[in-house]
Write a protein that binds this DNA or RNA. Structure first.
Length: 1189
RNA sequence: UGAGAUAUAGCUCAAUGGUAAGAGCACGUGCCUUAUACGCACAAGGUUACAGGUUCAAGUCCUGUUGUCUCAACCA
């Protein structure tokens, strides 16, 4: 006879290990996919993580979310393939290699460096580095129960993958969506390279620096002067700059369209000349003190500190547009139009003057506005960060000098200082120069002398620095390849409307807004380890080729060889059309190999553009590249079998990352969304809401967590605790140990110096422990209860022979109704990608309903008597609840769900297979998701039971107040009834209530029998429509006349309230009448319910109570002695005058409750073979219990 | 600076615009009723961040402020 396994204790980590072993031995994951062969696919794309970093707890969170829906959809019968992937390119990998090898970018390919490394070796190192933690990732994946196929992952550095990426690029190129242009990018002259925003966002890159800033005067040209004001004085625009070194490259000024500007007559503060200046009205008093409003112009003498001023005109920014001004520092004339006022939407009046100096080469906004207005630019700084030779006047500026002081070495500074001192002193500009003057300072001096300076000051602001050289970054125009995104915004935006975003606001807000303002995508990266841009150009730029496949490249090389541009074909071993791995391993498309390929077109030699492409393009290409589209699996994409994805999920930080690049590539290459549903999950923060970081010591090691609590509790905690898109404050306390074995608990952030002495050795999570107790512990116990009695009875589920639900008793039908309501709810929540709601619903069902109501109230059915239909029904009901719960929870807690299912069904597996019934599957993950049966759901029944639960709770509450133990039987509950329907409902569950609260009868009373004090509550929902603005009046009337209203409603079904001359008729639905008290009784209220308890104790009741105490003591002793629940016993109790009658009067009750075959009241028991029991405070006696035969 | 999110009990979270704001944990009290003390029950706990507004009615809608988180940027 097979039995249900019984356990001593719940051990979740062990369950995880056992089930993992089972899955591995039985290839359960593979079966869950193969068993759905031919079914509708549900397409999931795995966002590739980078294996050069250790997996963190946030990965567990993100992957749990992915896993949940993939498992759920599999259960629903879809085929869900999950191909793993690795993101292998990009800066973090390069940085990792450089750290490992102890080198910097300068050493790469630089033979003069002592640490020289060839690009080839460097890239080899990257290839190795990128898979550094692959085994850790595989461990965490297995341990957390994330099902993803890691046997054949897509790898972004793979030649096949790159080939698909090239194909996509060529596709864009052919559609004319790829172009070469230049943009302003952060650039480190010291390192000679552009910087990505990721690099700029390295900690410590933004630093507060003090800069020389200046408010500069731009003189309105004679031609424009007439247009704005007739004045004999010169007119100047005032513009503020924090980077005076960009002033020689100024080609325009920008104003805000709707900003108000004023014309102010005044004097130049440095040379005292009368002048008119233009600036934003709002900022007037920043430069002209209100105190000086009344100063007389006549009294002013050059050099006076207080300068008189007068506003002589107003206008809006738009009125200033087009006005031309004189070049401020005419070292070089720009090509094209320049030196006019433009309107820029970025102009504000938060600081400066409301007029912005525009140097298109050195600011992104500047560049944009200049381009829009077709204004030319000047780039008077070279890539080394030095002025061009032209920027010199022989006095203040000398040409070819660093524009930032920080770029000079101390030595250079000293030399420059000597030079400056000589020149400036010789020209009489400065008497005794003490220190090196920066370019900024000297430009300001020059402007001051030329009467073009209005104000100078030092200003502290944060400015980005190169993370490698520590030197300030410049914004500099760099050549790049762009994807034309801006022109296709509308299509991108409209396609986005087809995507179901979770949460919606990320889609419409963060993502939608981003699309609406999307700029062209800069693909170029000047790095070493990445996908090379497949574009070859002639030196003059006249000819270019964009390669879209290896075969094409091979042919072009052949051509180049034929034309003498190349000698050998590095792709000679490649056989076109052979898709084998071996064939694709015969070459490498990375640098430096790609750079040694030269092509030919129209007689010109073509050289590859040395840039790599943005790694985001790699990952955005994965829908196609993972299947080597279009070279293989063409139909999967073209016929939309494996595209677009039904579901993707990543962190919300991917909104402008992977989500965006997938969307752009899908839209531009295939005019389709790339995914239909997307969950953008929030971050995992530490328990105080701080970002986790290793540096601060508040990071959570997923391996500790998984080892300690197992995957199920961890996953459940993370899912149930917060919506996926809300940040999760992860409850976790690290435990540190120093070298002497001393342990401390990390509750707050640990300072680095302490952290360095300690090692994290363990930790604990209050949150996970709660889940473990509350959900898994409860479920474990419930299963244990089932197994215990089923084994005693030798009961096994027989799917072919089940008591029809209709024939089961109220309690069974109730829990089944609850169960099927739960199925409905959980299905909906999973369908809606709201796993936290599913989890919470399951928790409530298990704890509140199944364990603490159904099992508690059904207990005796499981052990009383022989196998009856009712008993069988109880087993079947509980079995169904447990198996269904196991399935509902299995997407979230796959190990425990599996464990529970197997315990419940392994004993009957063979039969189920023979009978082809639902429990035939060896794993829960191969089963079919249950469907809620409408016929089983009985809302009325659920309401009835809720009444029973509420009433019980209310009675218990009265008992507690009155200090009456539940074990003490009481005579009567009274429930005042105003509504017969409620009475009917309560009648149906009467016996459950009585048993639960240990009372003998319920009496329903109405006013004919007893006085009931009533209260009323207005139903504002129905009254709102009726009363509108009169609501308040009705309300106050009702407060004062509640008795009359109650009477009116009860007698006539309506009551007329006079308000403000009108009349409002209250009807039954508008008023809720609630009984609140029965005078003379102990009463409890809960919403519309009121119950009263008769607390008088008769002698009979008291005796019965004592009998129950005795039963309880006997049960305890049975348990202490380790008797089986089926053992019959002989009980001897030492006589006690206060107890004997109670025992005699309740003898049969005591005996049947305790399986006592014989109960004897004896004169005396020897203390040596009897136990002392205290029945209540006053009664103590001795008792002995023996097993009968 | 911009965009998005968020702010409810000590903590973690609920609450179709309807008037007594709910759970769980922690705390307190009482209970070992043949599943479960890793349990059960009962209590206590709130100016719904702040300030305005819309509405008969606001935790909920609108505006502003403040705090926190994320992303993007840092430009005069």
């Amino acid at each position: 006879m097979k039995k249900y396994p019984e356990y001593k204790q719940l051990n979740l980590p062990q369950i995880s290990k056992d089930m993992l072993k089972f899955w591995e031995e039985n290839s359960t994951f593979a079966k869950s996919v193969s068993s759905r062969e031919g079914k509708t696919p549900w397409v999931f794309y795995e966002g590739p993580p980078s294996a050069n970093g250790m997996p963190g707890i946030h990965h567990v969170m993100a992957r749990a979310i992915k896993d949940i829906f993939c498992r759920f959809k599999t259960l629903q019968g879809y085929q869900v393939k999950r191909k793993a992937g690795w993101d292998t390119h990009g800066l973090p990998i390069e940085l990792g290699v450089e750290k490992t090898l102890g080198i910097t970018k300068e050493d790469i390919g630089n033979k003069n460096s002592p640490k020289y490394i060839s690009v080839e070796d460097y890239n080899k190192a990257c290839r190795k580095e990128v898979m550094k933690y692959t085994d850790k990732w595989e461990d965490v994946t297995a341990q957390m129960g994330y099902w993803v196929d890691m046997s054949d992952p897509y790898i972004t550095y793979d030649n096949k993958y790159i080939e698909s990426v090239w194909w996509l690029l060529q596709n864009l190129y052919k559609k004319n969506l790829l172009y070469k242009g230049y943009t302003i990018q952060p650039f480190s002259p010291a390192a000679g390279t552009g910087l990505s925003s990721a690099e700029l966002n390295q900690p410590g890159c933004y630093r507060d620096v003090k800069d020389r800033t200046a408010v500069v005067q731009f003189k309105v040209s004679e031609a424009s002067k007439v247009r704005i004001q007739s004045s004999k004085d010169d007119i100047y625009f005032l513009a503020w700059t924090t980077t005076p070194w960009t002033l020689p490259s100024n080609t325009a000024l920008a104003v805000g369209k709707d900003i108000e500007y004023v014309f102010v007559n005044s004097f130049n503060p440095f040379n005292g000349k009368p002048q008119t200046v233009i600036l934003a009205k709002e900022l007037l008093n920043k430069y002209f003190s209100e105190k000086h409003t009344d100063l007389k112009f006549e009294d002013y003498k050059p050099g006076d500190k207080n300068i008189p001023f007068k506003i002589v005109g107003h206008c809006k920014g738009s009125d200033l547009a087009g006005i031309s001004y004189e070049q401020l520092l005419p070292f070089v004339k720009p090509e094209g139009e320049a030196f006019k006022v433009l309107v820029g939407d970025f102009v504000t009046t938060t600081d400066g003057t409301g007029i912005v100096h525009i140097a298109p080469s050195f600011g992104a906004d500047d560049f944009k506005v200049a381009k829009q207005n077709e204004v030319g630019s000047l780039t008077l700084v070279d890539r080394r960060g030095k002025f061009l030779p032209e920027v010199q006047d022989g006095v203040f500026l000398y040409g070819e000098e660093y524009v930032k002081e920080a770029y000079l070495s101390e030595e250079e500074k000293a030399t420059e200082y000597a030079k400056q001192k000589k020149i400036l002193e010789a020209n009489g500009k400065i008497k005794d120069l003490k220190v090196y003057l920066s370019v900024d300072e000297r430009i300001v001096l020059k402007l001051q002398e030329e009467g073009k300076l209005f104000k100078k000051e030092t200003y502290e602001h944060s400015y980005p620095h190169c993370w490698r050289t520590d030197k300030p970054v410049l914004y500099y125009p760099l050549d790049s390849w762009f994807v034309k995104v801006a022109d296709n915004r509308e299509r991108l935006f409209n396609l986005n409307k087809e995507i179901n975003w979770k949460p919606e606001s990320t889609g419409t807000g963060r993502f939608g807004n981003w699309l609406e303002n999307a700029l062209d995508w800069n693909l170029s990266r000047s790095r070493f380890w990445g996908v090379p841009l497949p574009i070859w150009r002639s030196e003059d730029g006249a000819e270019q080729i964009c390669i879209g496949s290896v075969e094409e490249l091979q042919k072009e090389i052949e051509n180049a060889i034929a034309k003498g541009m190349m000698k050998e074909n590095p792709l000679s071993k490649f056989k076109a059309g052979d898709m084998s791995k071996e064939n694709y391993d015969t070459f490498d498309l990375h640098k430096p190999y790609a750079d040694s390929i030269f092509l030919e077109k129209n007689g010109k030699k073509l050289v590859r553009d040395s840039d790599l492409i943005d790694v985001w393009f790699d990952s955005g290409s994965m829908p196609y590249a993972q299947v080597h589209y279009p070279f293989e699996n063409k139909e999967l994409i073209d016929n939309k079998k494996y595209f677009p994805a039904d579901f993707i999920a990543e962190g919300v930080d991917q909104t402008r990352g992977w989500f965006y690049t997938l969307h752009v590539i899908g839209a531009l290459c295939f005019d389709s969304v790339a995914y239909k549903n997307v969950v953008s999950n929030g971050l995992v923060l530490d328990k105080n809401g701080n970002k986790m970081s290793k540096r601060l010591g508040n990071a959570v090691d997923p391996f500790f967590t998984l080892n300690k609590y197992g995957a199920d509790a961890t996953r459940w905690y993370m899912i149930a605790n917060a919506a996926p898109w809300d940040n999760l404050k992860f409850s976790w306390t690290n435990i540190y140990e120093d070298e002497n074995g001393k342990r401390i608990e990390g509750t707050e952030k640990i300072p680095a110096e302490i952290l360095s002495k300690y090692k994290i050795v363990d930790g604990h999570s209050d949150g996970i422990e709660e889940v473990q107790r509350k959900l898994f512990g409860t479920l474990y116990n419930t299963y244990g209860f089932y197994a215990l009695y089923a084994n005693v009875d030798g009961f096994l589920i027989d799917e072919k022979n089940i008591v029809p639900v209709k024939e089961r008793q109220e309690l069974d039908r109730w829990i089944l109704s609850k169960l099927h309501s739960l199925i409905k709810e959980v299905t909906e929540q999973y369908e809606n990608f709201e796993p936290h709601r599913a989890a919470r619903a399951i928790e409530e069902f298990v704890d509140e309903h199944l364990s603490n109501w159904y099992v508690r109230l059904s207990r005796r059915r499981f052990w009383k008597g022989d196998m009856s239909t009712d008993k069988k029904a109880a087993y079947e009901t509980l079995h169904e609840c447990l198996t269904v719960v196991a399935q509902l929870m299995s997407p979230i807690s796959p190990f425990f769900g599996e464990w529970l299912y197997q315990n419940l069904t392994n004993p009957i597996r063979e039969n189920a297979i023979k009978n082809n019934t639902p429990l035939q599957y060896e794993s829960i993950h191969l089963t079919n998701f249950v469907k809620a049966e409408a016929a089983v759901i009985d809302v009325n029944l659920e309401q009835r039971m809720e009444l029973a639960q509420k009433i019980s709770s209310m009675i218990l509450s009265i008992r507690r107040k009155e200090n009456l133990k539940v074990r003490q039987p009481l005579q009567k509950i009274q429930i005042p009834i105003l509504d017969k329907e409620i009475q009917t409902k309560i009648e149906a569950v009467k016996n459950l209530i009585l048993a639960e609260v240990n009372v003998k009868e319920i009496e329903f009373v109405d006013e004919s029998q007893t006085q009931i004090i009533k209260n009323m509550k207005l139903n504002f929902k129905t009254l709102g429509k009726k009363c509108g603005a009169n609501m308040k009046a009705v309300q106050s009337f009702a407060n004062e006349n509640s008795a009359a209203i109650i009477k009116g409603i009860e007698s006539y079904g309506q009551f007329t309230v006079p308000v403000n001359g009108a009349e409002i008729v209250l009807e039954t639905e508008d008023v809720e009448i609630i009984p609140v008290d029965i005078p003379g009784w102990k009463v409890a209220n809960n919403g519309p319910l009121t119950v009263a308890l008769d607390v008088t104790l008769t002698e009979a009741l008291r005796q019965e109570g004592l009998a129950r105490e005795v039963v309880n003591r006997i049960q305890n002793i049975r348990k202490d002695k380790g008797f089986e629940v089926t053992d019959k016993i002989l009980v001897k109790i030492q006589q006690n005058a206060n107890l004997d009658t109670a025992i005699k009067n309740n003898l049969s009750y005591i005996c049947s409750e305790t399986l006592t075959g014989d109960l004897q009241l004896v004169q005396e028991l020897s203390a040596s073979n009897a136990s002392t029991i205290e029945v209540d405070e006053l009664i103590t006696t001795l008792i002995s219990i023996e097993k009968l035969n």
